[in-house]
Design a protein around this nucleic acid. Structure first.
Length: 565
RNA sequence: CGGGGCGUAGCGCAGCCUGGUAGCGCACUUGGUUCGGGACCAAGGGGUCGGAGGUUCAAAUCCUCUCGCCCCGACCA
């Protein structure tokens, strides 16, 4: 393939509004262009990367018996109404009406339509198990698209769905997907962790996420290096580090205008872990006071699990309910229901006195708020002890590149996806759903593989395997050698990009570094006179001089060694 | 949804405070010199200054509204 025939609009400067490294590089190197917030155009190079990732996904999905299908993006409201998600999902779903005034939506996922199909065309236990998948566009009206291709409103997703007769069958389908996913990410050349995750909106009994470490990510995971425990902080459990006990008397201390943990900490000359953070939230059944240690963060989702839907109280509400302004509220002096983190059972603390301008010191759970309900509601943080082995955990920022869920009968029952077992009894099909975001794999690869000069693609998903640069494209002999080498390499099954542009060497080298094709053959006139060319590896920068005829074999050897594809 | 920032040539920006001729770098076109790490010289093309309304003799600049894009937050006590 000739460079001059391709649209590869590289830029010297990154777009001003790009923040994430992958975003900057994918735009600069001419892989993508942004059309509007969260809407991206894939240019030829970007398209090639996505297609390579998709090919790997297809191979691994087919290997576990997946059957590729295609669902409509435009969905009738009915199927979503049957599962209740038409109402459960808010503004994130694009909704529209057809010309007849019927409610429609653009699918953000396909549990409903897949279950609909299962309901219509799976009848007998003999039809099970099944795994159906598609690689197709999803639409989500994200509150805040960001980080380039990482969070967009329209994106391609590989989603698969398993249909089994019982939980044991689901376990098998789930495990197969888990293994297939590991292979997919490994083949794509990205680093990743498999972690336990929250089942959230999808419902179901068990879920894992596949997380690629990167600063550009939006999730944090807790990892224990000694026993292998790994979980999304959304549900990660941990034992907070013990703090030294402070022997202070039970007394009221005037703390005028000292409201925040930070202010009170400084005023009392203690560390934050000696304070109790009190957070008032409003549930459907009235206010609840959440109590956590001062150096901890409240975990919204854990709290939600304990008390159901809730929202933080407004400042005025705090005053109405507790009779004191936010900043001085605490566990004592009122009858509001309290949920406290278990780590507060030990130790003696200071907290708001529930009296304007005062805090209380010397508070202990046992003596002063034994009536609280104790539940894990803190967010795991680095240095906490692993609940499995007791060793310290670490927290890592990650990009979610895939997830798998055991759904059970959440979708099959409302959509009437039943089968008849051997005894003629009607039973609901047990489902699982499994997603991968190819664009996120690409972005994660860029996040994990780049240097100051540009991208360093993993071989398996690089837009081309080899870039050939005739330094002087006007020199007929250089071009001829480039063409010959390209033909030989292509015959061997490699993808080759020949930079035939009439540009100065520096421009070609800079662009090559930016685009990040793993191997480069440089054809210079001086070397050519000796019958030699250079082979350069993008990642290591190592240059090797070889005789022309050996170049294809040298490349082949390197590629086989790296084991791409 | 809350807060902040920004919309001027394809990209990156200046000009706006203090109204009066729309500018710079890169990219692009043509010619010449150069040619292994983003060359140089010369000559060019390209703009309804996001949009609408208003103030004014006069608006990129001032006022009002609106649209778009980006970032942070949605974990105070």
């Amino acid at each position: 393939m000739y460079y001059s025939h391709l649209l590869i609009p590289t830029l010297k400067e990154p777009p001003a509004d790009a923040e994430a490294v992958s975003h900057k590089l994918m735009v600069r190197a001419g892989f993508v262009r942004q059309l509007a917030a969260g809407l991206y155009i894939y240019l030829p190079l970007g398209q090639r990367v996505i297609e390579k990732i998709n090919r790997i996904i297809r191979e691994e999905m087919n290997a576990i018996g997946g059957q590729e299908v295609t669902m409509p993006v435009l969905n009738p409201a009915e199927v979503w109404q049957q599962t209740g998600r038409w109402d459960a999902i808010g503004d994130e779903m694009f909704r529209l009406k057809d010309r007849g005034g019927r409610d429609m939506c653009l699918a953000m996922t396909h549990e409903e339509t897949m279950a609909w199909l299962a309901a219509h065309d799976l009848r007998s236990y003999r039809d099970l198990p099944q795994v159906w998948y598609q690689i197709q566009t999803k639409l989500r009206d994200e509150a805040r698209p960001k980080s380039g291709v990482l969070r967009t409103r329209e994106f391609i997703m590989k989603d698969s769905y398993s249909f089994d007769r019982d939980e044991a069958g689901l376990d098998v389908s789930y495990q197969r997907h888990l293994e297939a996913y590991k292979k997919i990410y490994t083949r794509c050349g990205i680093r990743f962790s498999v972690v336990q995750s929250d089942t959230g909106l999808m419902g179901g009994s068990q879920a894992h996420e596949f997380m690629a470490p990167s600063q550009a990510g939006e999730d944090d995971i807790a990892i224990c290096d000694s026993c292998g425990y790994a979980a999304n902080v959304e549900l990660a459990e941990s034992v907070p580090s013990q703090h030294k006990t402070h022997n202070w008397k039970f007394e009221e201390v005037a703390t005028p205008e000292k409201r925040t943990i930070d202010e009170v900490t400084r005023f009392l000359k203690v560390t934050p872990d000696l304070l109790i953070k009190s957070i008032l939230v409003i549930t459907n059944d009235g206010p609840i006071l959440a109590l956590i240690r001062g150096d901890h963060m409240l975990h919204e989702k854990k709290l939600a699990k304990a008390i159901g839907q809730h929202r933080p109280a407004q400042k005025e509400e705090v005053k109405d309910i507790l009779g004191v302004s936010a900043g001085f509220i605490g566990p004592m002096g009122h009858r509001i229901k309290k949920i406290a983190d278990p780590c507060l059972k030990q130790g003696v603390y200071a907290a708001g006195a529930n009296k304007e301008g005062f805090h209380l010191t010397g508070i202990s759970a046992e003596k002063h708020f034994a009536d609280a309900e104790f539940m894990d509601i803190h967010t795991a943080q680095a240095g906490d002890a692993c609940t499995v082995c007791g060793k310290p955990i670490r927290i890592e920022r990650v990009i979610e590149v895939g997830n798998i869920f055991k759904l059970g009968t959440k979708y099959s029952v409302p959509l009437k996806a039943y089968y008849l077992d051997e005894n003629g009894a009607e039973k609901p099909i047990i489902m699982g759903s499994y997603g991968i975001g190819p664009a996120r794999i690409a972005a994660a690869a860029v996040e994990q593989g780049n240097d100051e000069n540009g991208i360093m693609w993993p071989l398996a998903i690089a837009p081309f395997h080899v870039q050939i640069i005739p330094v002087n494209a006007k020199d007929q002999q250089s071009l001829k050698v480039a063409e010959d080498l390209s033909a030989i390499l292509e015959k061997k099954g490699f993808e080759v990009l020949v930079d035939d542009r009439d540009e100065r060497a520096g421009v070609k080298f800079k662009d090559a570094d930016l685009i990040g094709i793993p191997y480069r053959i440089v054809i210079g006139e001086k070397n050519l006179k000796e019958g030699m060319v250079e082979i350069k590896e993008r990642k290591s920068g190592v240059v090797e001089k070889v005789v022309i005829a050996d170049a294809p074999f040298a490349i082949e050897k390197k590629i086989h060694k790296e084991g791409g594809n």
